[in-house]
Amino acid sequence: MVDELDFYRKMLTIRLLETELQKLCLAGLAGDLHFNKGQEAISVGTCAALAPEDYIVTHHRTIAQTYSKGTELKPLVAEILGRKGGTNNGLAGEMHFNNPAARHLFSFQLVGTCVPVAAGVAWAVKNYLREPQIVGCFFGDGSTSNAQFHEGLNIASLKKLPLLLICENNGLAGNIRKATYLPTDSVTERASAYGIESCRIDGNDVLSVYKTVEEVSRKVREESHPYLIEMMTTRLCWHKQGQPDARSDEELQELAKLDPIPRLGRRLADRARERVEAEVNQEVQDVIRYGLSLKYPDESVIPQLQAYLETMAVKD
């Protein structure tokens, strides 16, 4: 359902959370993080349009997808900070988020590698579970140069798998620009080469993202085949901490005019919007404080982990 205020709340939550986390990064209190600033509309709109039972498989810029798919803030922040109480007990960190309970299966740090895995999940849904779920696979335009992206598309098309391919096209691969890695005008052309239907939309318009995913996911579910949506977006942050942006301040300021959050905010009534802003701000402050109050996992866990790896193998 289109709930503009809820979309706004979620996008703002991601934005403020990342802003706070960045401060912690700079203070040396958080490890390697990849932020989503400017791309929030894609995760929020897509996950709202997918069914709760649908699966997602994602890339490493993944706080936005994890949160949008339903992981609670507390375990999410705890994991980012590597603390006890995290979604994965501090073993995964931001880059490897996974929360099968929320049907966020895994985040793949090596870009492009999520695509064949998502195809395998879709194969299992179609041929084994035989349930009406579909699989949403998030990746960036930079990863579409990777062989695994192509192998994944090829096999998904051949086997007619219910796979929704979400390309977050921010025109960047790390710190290099499109001209260095994409010889075609669009990523949709790459999909066409594998006989996969596709479309390109404004990924900074959360309402358009939602509407398109709602429509396309119905098609993927009913007709069982892959479909690629190329969502044009803007990365308003560095690739990651420690790698200053190659773009000029002027360019970033120009891009900030396309920021999806104020764009949606302008559609909302001031009072409602301000109330949400105050609530989100409070919630984010609280959860950061909560995260910092948690303990790190005890170092004595290392030999236990070794034993665990050796013994976990055989089901009784």
Binding site: P116, V117, A122, W123, E151, N154
Partner: peptide, 19 residues
Amino acid sequence: PISEAAIVGAAVGASLLGL
């Protein structure tokens, strides 16, 4: 297809759902 990365990648994906 002749697609070793996708064969194993898809096997990983399918195994995550219990196959």
